[in-house]
Write a protein that binds this DNA or RNA. Structure first.
Length: 191
DNA sequence: GTGAAGATTAACT
DNA sequence: GTTAATCTTCACA
């Protein structure tokens, strides 16, 4: 079942842990790919030193974050990789959730072709790799997550009891001072 | 127009 | 654990 807009209109720290175990679907021109969300990080807008909006403010790149929840925010990092975020909370509140890793469900041959590897567990185990495997580029920035191209759905086969949840500090934001210590990274580990 | 820095990854030692 | 690759984005002139 597809996730509705209202799901995304809440606080980032509420939405982020609830995304774990849901299925991310990308209906691309090359074919459909799906994966279970295994790891996310919450970015809490203006008061979060690690968030783009707290450094750069409202710019062309970050404008989508000021819209209401349920839109994709895709940016390029180090000139090499894309990262996928989901905009959450109400209009004018720039909060996002970064999707860091997935467990592939459907379209695995297509993922392998895009990533040029045969190891399934290495297809989506990082933000940049996940975007390569799913075919996500900045062309998808601003896409409605409640539409037909890119969306989330509940996963009827997902067994919550097969995993345990962890909450840890975020990764790769050493420049963010105190904010790098906030435990806003959420992940699922198989037991 | 110019310059600095980065929400990462893969390949090293 | 450390480091190079590589280019978009933003700040300033």
């Amino acid at each position: 079942m597809k996730i509705q807009r209202s799901f995304f209109l809440r606080d980032t720290l509420t939405v982020a842990p609830e995304l774990l175990g849901l299925t991310l679907v990308h209906n691309s021109p090359d074919g459909i790919t799906k994966g279970t969300i295994m790891e996310v990080e919450a970015y809490k807008g203006l008061e979060d030193a690690a968030a783009h909006v707290s450094r750069a403010g409202r710019t062309q790149r970050t404008a989508i974050q000021f819209e209401e929840g349920g839109y994709a925010y895709v940016y390029m990092i180090y000139g090499l990789y894309y990262c996928l975020n989901i905009v959450v909370n109400k209009k004018e509140i720039p909060e996002t959730v970064l999707i860091r890793s997935l467990e592939p469900l459907e379209g695995i041959p297509l993922m392998r072709k895009r990533r040029k590897t045969n190891q399934i567990q290495k297809l989506c185990d990082g933000p940049g790799k996940m975007c390569q495997a799913m075919g996500i580029t900045k062309a998808l920035s601003g896409t409605d997550i409640c539409g037909e191209i890119l969306y989330l759905e509940t996963n009827p086969y997902f067994q919550a009891s097969s995993y345990h949840r962890e909450q840890t500090p975020r990764i790769g934001i050493a420049y963010a001072g105190e904010a790098q210590k906030y435990p806003w990274r959420f992940l699922l580990k198989s037991s």
